[in-house]
């Protein structure tokens, strides 16, 4: 079902439609929030704030087809508020207890897929900026470059070239001979 129709049903009071919105866009909000490297408690607060905002705002969204973009922007704004507001008072809002994949934690990974494991090990070696960009690029449903540029606070024209360079860096970190087609079929 299209976001437009879902939102119309939500405004009409259909809880099932709301749950469907959460199922469809929950991963996207999570990806954007996680790209800011907040503590897990602060990430939860930001994500919940975004959903509460949508609940109170859903009747007023003028372009329902832009829901993904609205969610991304709202998540970014609230994450920045937490970073700029709370971190000055207490550093606890910043990353401390997050399960950011690191070389050591990947050893305990709950995946026996060697390709995914290799990708995660390579991902963990990337810079925070590259990791943030990749999280946004992998969001489901996908975010357009305009939304990604807004979340990152960068010009839209820079996203394509930055994506290419970031993927090159990731590719160089992957073990030689990695062949996803073999592993994943």
């Amino acid at each position: 079902m299209e976001a437009q129709e879902l939102l119309r049903r939500v405004v009409d009071g259909d809880q099932g439609a709301w749950d469907e919105v959460v199922r469809q866009f929950g991963g996207l909000v999570w990806s954007v929030a996680r790209s800011f490297r907040l503590s897990s408690a602060a990430t939860d607060d930001v994500v919940q704030t975004v959903w509460l905002r949508l609940a109170e705002h859903c009747g007023k969204i003028r372009q329902p087809e832009r829901l993904a973009s609205w969610l991304a922007t709202t998540t970014r704004n609230e994450a920045l508020r937490v970073i700029r507001g709370q971190s000055r008072l207490s550093p606890s809002a910043m990353e401390d207890d997050t399960v950011e994949p690191t070389a050591s934690s990947i050893e305990d990974l709950v995946t026996d897929d060697d390709t995914l494991r290799a990708v995660l090990i390579a991902f963990a070696k990337l810079s925070p900026d590259d990791q943030a960009l990749l999280r946004l690029l992998c969001a489901v449903p996908p975010l357009d470059y305009e939304s990604i540029a807004e979340v990152l606070g960068r010009p839209i024209g820079s996203i394509g070239p930055t994506r290419a360079r970031c993927l090159d860096r990731l590719r160089r970190l992957l073990p030689a001979g990695l062949n996803p087609k073999e592993e994943l079929t």
């Binding site: 959460v22 919940q48 959903w51 949508l54 995946t111 996803p180």
Partner: peptide
């Protein structure tokens, strides 16, 4: 591949989805 890897190791936690649904 990165998307699949991240969703494996860092999925949206159940309590976060439950919270989002309750926000309605």
């Amino acid at each position: 591949l990165v998307g699949r890897a991240l969703r494996t190791v860092d999925p949206v936690p159940e309590h976060v989805l439950d919270g989002a649904m309750a926000a309605w």
